[in-house]
């Protein structure tokens, strides 16, 4: 009951935060010099004042700031993020077409990094001076130090260009036809390299942290108690110790959610993954303000939902947090 209550409070805060993000995004964009009218007139090779005024009144840009803000927020509440003149489509539709691809990439990369990171962390914590431990430390440093686009290009050259194991770009092969599973395998084949690339940065973080916390937990009194009960090594490590060392890793994963999304922009660009990242990149180049705003809004949404899920996961793992809001 208390769990539900605190979760609802969290959701309420999340909505307040989202509105704040909306206002801030819009204000910042408004502060920046130039507007849609300028960009349109530029792309037409110049326009006179009359045309500019007409464009501005068409887009409602001649209204006072607060009115524009109010309209924008009212629009967002009805899932209307404005109209992209560059793509000639409603922004909501544009984003909704791209969002699943980004979510697929971000969520799978995050999960891969988490599970593999924790697993490697546990292995190296059990034998801190073993070969695996040194290998994990090396991989972690490498993954963290290497720029993500460079890792991506390297993987592309190795596995796609030379070995032909994976496709070079995109998310699906348009020439393929077949049932659900055929398409599933196709998307998976496209997904693997970008996923590994994106996960590599976070894998480093998570495995280092998991290793450190696991080593600490393995030396704790309750692990000694678990051993004194005659439990097997597996139970001591993967039940008693692991559940206790998960909290810091989950917390970090939650904090990294925004970093994962910004990482996705780079990875999507390298692999031509048809997600929000590619869209963001293109619309920034085209100065497509409504689309940029929309993407910022959705990124904030994903981060906030991610944090909310982190919060819930933490409460599930650690009963001591359940009563607190």
């Amino acid at each position: 009951m208390q769990f539900l209550q605190t979760t609802l409070i969290r959701i309420f805060y999340a909505i307040v935060l989202l509105v704040a993000v909306l206002v801030l995004n819009f204000s910042l964009m408004h502060l920046a010099p130039g507007d849609v009218a300028d960009t349109i007139s530029q792309s037409m090779g110049g326009a006179d004042q009359e045309l500019l005024d007409r464009i501005r009144s068409d887009y409602g840009l001649d209204q006072p700031f607060l009115v524009q803000l109010g309209r924008y927020i009212a629009g967002v509440l009805q899932f209307d993020l404005g109209f992209s003149f560059f793509y000639n489509q409603p922004v909501t539709k544009l984003i909704m077409e791209r969002l699943p691809a980004t979510l697929l990439l971000v969520v799978t990369a995050q999960l891969l990094a988490l599970f593999l990171g924790v697993f490697l962390g546990v292995i190296s914590a059990r034998k801190p001076n073993g070969l695996t431990s040194h290998f994990v430390t090396f991989m972690a440093l490498f993954g963290y130090a290497a720029p993500v686009f460079w890792t991506g290009i390297l993987l592309l050259i190795g596995f796609s260009l030379h070995l032909h194991w994976f496709p070079v770009a995109g998310m699906r092969d348009v020439t393929i036809s077949g049932g659900f599973w055929v398409h599933f395998v196709d998307v998976l084949r496209h997904l693997i390299l970008p996923m590994i690339t994106l996960a590599s940065i976070f894998l480093a973080l998570y495995s280092r942290l998991a290793r450190a916390t696991m080593m600490e937990v393995l030396g704790s009194d309750y692990v000694r108690t678990a051993k004194s009960k005659g439990l097997s090594q597996r139970q001591v490590v993967y039940k008693h110790a692991l559940k206790n060392s998960l909290s810091p890793v989950i917390t970090l994963a939650g904090l990294q959610f925004s970093a994962v999304i910004s990482g996705a922009v780079l990875v999507e660009t390298v692999f031509s993954w048809p997600g929000l990242g590619t869209l963001a990149f293109q619309s920034i180049i085209a100065r497509d303000t409504p689309t940029i705003l929309g993407i910022l809004f959705f990124s904030a949404l994903v981060v906030i939902v991610g944090n909310l899920l982190t919060d819930i996961a933490l409460r599930l793992v650690d009963p001591r947090l359940r009563g607190r809001s």
Binding site: D221, Y222, T225, S228, K229, G230, L231, H240, N244, R320
Partner: peptide
């Protein structure tokens, strides 16, 4: 064999009840 004996034939109570029990179970 020691695991069979531990907690079954010989068991132990520790000094610190605050930290000797696992907080998450």
């Amino acid at each position: 064999r020691l695991r069979e004996i531990r907690g079954n034939d010989i068991s132990m109570i520790f000094q610190e009840p605050m930290t000797s029990l696992n907080p998450v179970f």
